[in-house]
Design a binder for these strands. Structure first.
Lengths: 351, 351
DNA sequence: AGGGTTTGATTAAGCGTTTAATCACCTTAC
DNA sequence: GTAAGGTGATTAAACGCTTAATCAAACCCT
């Protein structure tokens, strides 16, 4: 005498319409042979009765869960929001849900996380692996988002080209003496970026690469990087391969009385959330996460489709890597190279 | 002639052992009546045959998907990674998966995202709502992570108390003239923090609150906040309610030649990822996300349990809000108040 | 007009679990 | 010796959906 239809199911609908459940199913999925008018009618009543198909039932029957797994090696990564948002959006557009798992940087846990997702029935996985980690062969489609150096299906930002872009931009501003700041020399991504920058420099330009990890292992965490001295020696631009490092450089220079961008330019990578709001706001290279996620999800669904048809393990679609161009975001922290001042006390406000 | 047992199911196991499927199910779940030896034997063969129960089947039968939905309204929020990580961990510990949905800041999309999760069969939802948004009544258990001012089940950091803690700490360092920096006066969270700070100040202390949004609406985005002037006028500590703002304050002061922490202290809130690595590293109040997530998930599972038993809608467990204390993280950006200098040009390095 | 094809719908089986109901058997008690 | 009770297992139905197989009726063609 109370709840009329708490949540109608396919049979309820069929009964109410006086047709069979199969017909309703066909009408809604557009698969079998149903007359156009009936389809119309069924869809209408389905909508107004608030019918929601049971995903578990569908999953059980079809063997597809309609869920993608997103494995973040380290969820605390500052780029995570961008990635998660983009992947979720792309997946939702294709009618898929996104299950997350995090391996908190622990390489052992990474496979654990992957397994959890597989047990939950994820149809395929998007993996953002921990640095230097390889994703082993699991029995399901996988797409990796990383630097383009993975034997699997990979989609990544074109870090090398990103480096070139920012290098060229800075050259066009008249800079000739580069200090390139990296975090860890073991990172593929960072090395790609550094390589890109250097490859864009002509013969008359100088560049020096410093790795924060190296310096800190000597002088302790949070130590000075000696940038002010380098600026005094003639470096006009500090090119960090991450906004994290760019911020650090920016503050060190400002503390040392070097005016940014008048006396020196600072640039970063990744366009992290605070990059627009610091002063001066950071010039940086942004990854096109939306495109990366779109491609990743598309490739994944492709593989999932293919998996359904192909029984023999031989005819899986060949692994493919795609590079997505990065975008230069020019803000206030970069500008023209200062007029040459040969270690004379120039017009710039120094100590 | 190839795959021996691609993925055994309950019946396969039962057949191999010569018992019924029901017995296997009971043995594994420990529910029915099965002899201890048989349980032992079944569990053993289950394990070594690599048996993985089908979640969809279980979900279909029991009506529980074993999945929690995580709704992030304000995905740009820098705390997002911490929250997601903590929730995922807490849920995984309880054998639950986490499905994410993002409403990209759009308030209309928020309900859409919630619905997507419900359609996917989420047993319950953890919602981190967009500022000023209320979560409407959906037919499932919900826990909200927000400032403690929501009519629903809510768990939140005790922002007010956090404000008091940092206020007291700064008082103990001798500070008496506070500038409190907020972003938007419409944020509950920020208001709580500001209120907490002020409530901790004795009569002989002065405080002034400035809202960045207000200043920027007059002077344009990224404008100066006039902090250097305030420092000259005697303010010795700049208390931001977010590390984002603290960073901005820090840079503005450093650019103006104010030494932090010698001439003035700067503190923030949230312990964002870069807070330890800027120079000087930021003193801040950290939320205990792990605890918050634990409580949120626990309360959610509780509600899900209760929902199973209680038929009458009346006897749902009463909404409860919990506050989790924040943790003071002392780093380099704060220190003792400088010795009094009555607008005379002190010993500090200025312009 | 009657055999073949097309169209629009139905029937029924099955996906892998859980669980209430049932059953056979063994104890125990009177 | 037999009824009552306990124990350890089985049977069978159900969860909600998809889909191949089937079927009845309408259509086409010569």
């Amino acid at each position: 005498m109370s709840n009329p239809r708490p949540r109608p199911n396919l049979s309820d609908l069929a009964a109410a319409l006086g047709v069979s459940a199969a017909t309703v199913s066909n009408a809604l999925s557009g698969k079998g042979r149903v007359s156009p008018e009936l389809i119309e009618k069924i869809r209408k009543t389905a909508a107004e009765s608030g019918y929601i198909p049971s995903l578990p039932a569908k999953a059980l029957r079809t063997g597809r869960s309609g869920v993608l797994g997103l494995v973040l090696a380290d969820i605390a990564h500052p780029l995570f929001p961008q990635i998660a948002q983009a992947v979720e959006f792309a997946a939702a557009n294709c009618g898929y849900g996104v299950l997350i798992a995090d391996s908190r940087g622990d390489i052992a846990t990474q496979t654990g996380a992957i397994n959890r997702l597989l047990e939950r029935g994820a149809d395929g996985l998007v993996v953002v692996p921990r640095r230097g980690t390889r994703v082993g062969d699991i029995g399901r489609p996988v797409v990796v988002i990383d630097s383009p150096s993975t034997p699997r299906n990979t989609v990544a930002a074109d870090h090398w080209n990103g480096g070139q872009q920012i290098g060229q931009y800075l050259l066009s501003q008249g800079h000739r003496h580069f200090v390139i700041i990296g975090g860890s020399a073991t990172s593929n991504v960072q090395n790609d970026r550094v390589g890109g920058i250097r490859s864009s420099l002509p013969a008359d330009a100088t560049s020096e690469v410093i790795w924060i990890e190296d310096i800190e292992s000597k002088n302790g965490k949070g130590c000075d990087l000696g940038l002010v001295a380098k600026a005094r020696e003639g470096a006009t631009v500090f090119c960090a391969v991450s906004d994290l490092h760019a911020l650090r450089a920016l503050m060190e220079l400002q503390r040392g009385g070097i005016d940014v961008p008048k006396a020196a330019s600072v640039t970063g990578f990744d366009d992290l959330i605070w990059s627009p709001v610091v002063t001066p706001s950071l010039t940086t290279m942004r990854m096109d996460m939306a495109t990366i996620a779109d491609i990743a999800v598309a490739r994944l669904l492709e593989a999932i489709e293919a998996e359904g048809g192909a029984k023999s393990p031989s005819e899986k679609p060949e692994p493919h890597i795609s590079s997505v161009p990065m975008q230069l975001v020019i803000r206030q922290s970069s500008g023209p190279a200062p007029v040459r001042r040969l270690s004379t006390s120039g017009g710039v406000a120094v100590l």
